[in-house]
Amino acid sequence: MIARDLMNSEFPYVTADADLDYVAKLLADCGLGAVPVVDDDLSPIGIVTRSNLEQPRIQPLPDLGAIPAFLLRDRPKPIFHANGRALREVMTSPAISISDVAKIPDIARIMESHSLKRIPVVEGHKIIGLLLRKEVTEAMKGGFPAMALEAHRRRPLISISQQNSDRCAVATASEFRELVASHERQLELERTEHRRMATELRDQRIRELACQRLTEAQWRSMLEQARRSAAAGLTEHLLIRFPSQLCVDGGRAINAPDLKWPTTLRGEPADVYRRWRNELHPRGFRIAAQIIDFPEGMPGDAALFLMWSAARN
């Protein structure tokens, strides 16, 4: 068993410029009894416990004798006030730390020789946990069988009330950056899924349109609408609008333009072209095809226009 097996991986820590009142609150909310102090590289440089913050007790007068223990047992502790003191003034420094791969007997000897109740655990130079002497003692006695050790690893290690829960106390800027990155990855996954679903729907729609045929009623309605356009003073009328993907080449011939564009039409647009060629072309009407929008720079919808203006020389 090594330090990583027993360490508390959820713990508060601060830098040396933290307010002492804030550190006192962390100590009050934390069940570990200590708050490590780290530098900008997350290397431990000190540690603060409740004893660091407690003011020296005023000794009773000699003629009064010592205060009985039972009177002190349930006596509420006075509210802490920093009184202008800085964290550097009260923290224990330098901090003694151990490697995450240190063995439990070695840890026990270090804690015993330095009279430590808690010791930071580091990986390289970076702090990754806090180890308590009572847990080391329990492990030395064999009090952590496999199942109990697993439960120990999973248990909540910082007992902070729900009303005062402050996740930022145990977070780092890198963790916040990872949250941002995770959010962006989730958005990209959602955008990818949205594009996939849109593509599937579009392809299904194209397959359906390719199978549709122009009815006589639709053709007569198109001609009637064209007549109304002429009565309104227009010289052309949009007969049918359709996705450019309905063309066998995705609308490239229409966009070029290529004189062979009629051969790329499918479904109703192909029927419209044939009706024009058979019925309207001999009567002087012309027809034109055009891509009428370009979403994201790609050909979108196409349209067939019926025209009756005199051809320009």
Rank of each mutant, 00 (worst) to 15 (best):
Leu87His: 08
Asp40Pro: 01
Ile96Ala: 06
Val90Met: 08
Leu32Gly: 06
Gly33Gln: 10
Gly84His: 08
Ile67Phe: 04
Asn52Val: 03
Gln59Thr: 14
Asp74Asn: 14
Ser93Asp: 02
Gly46Pro: 03
Arg109Trp: 02
Pro36Asp: 07
Val101Gln: 14
Gly31Cys: 07
Gly46Val: 04
Gln55Ile: 11
Ser51Ala: 15
Asp29Thr: 01
Arg75Val: 09
Asp63Glu: 14
Leu32Trp: 06
Asp41Thr: 13
Leu87Pro: 05
Pro56Phe: 03
Ile45Asp: 10
Gly65Val: 04
Val48Asn: 04
Pro105Cys: 09
Ile67Tyr: 01
Ala108Val: 00
Tyr22Ile: 01
Leu87Ser: 04
Gly31Ser: 15
Pro44Asn: 02
Asp41Glu: 14
Pro68Glu: 13
Ser113Val: 13
Phe70Tyr: 14
Ala28Leu: 14
Leu53Pro: 08
Leu71Gln: 12
Ile47Ser: 07
Arg50Gln: 11
Leu42Asp: 14
Asp17Tyr: 02
Cys30Gln: 13
Pro78Val: 10
Ala82Ile: 00
Ser51Pro: 01
Asp39Leu: 04
Ile67Met: 10
Asp63Gly: 00
Pro60Lys: 05
Asp106Lys: 13
Thr49Ser: 15
Leu53His: 12
Ser99Met: 03
Ala69Lys: 12
Ile104Cys: 05
Leu42Pro: 00
Leu64His: 01
Asp106Ser: 14
Asp74Ala: 04
Ile58Gly: 00
Asn52Thr: 03
Arg73Pro: 00
Pro105Val: 05
Gly65Phe: 06
Ile98Arg: 06
Ile98Gly: 06
Gln59Val: 15
Ile58Arg: 11
Asp21Cys: 06
Pro36Arg: 09
Ile47Asp: 07
Gly65Met: 00
Pro62Cys: 04
Pro44Val: 04
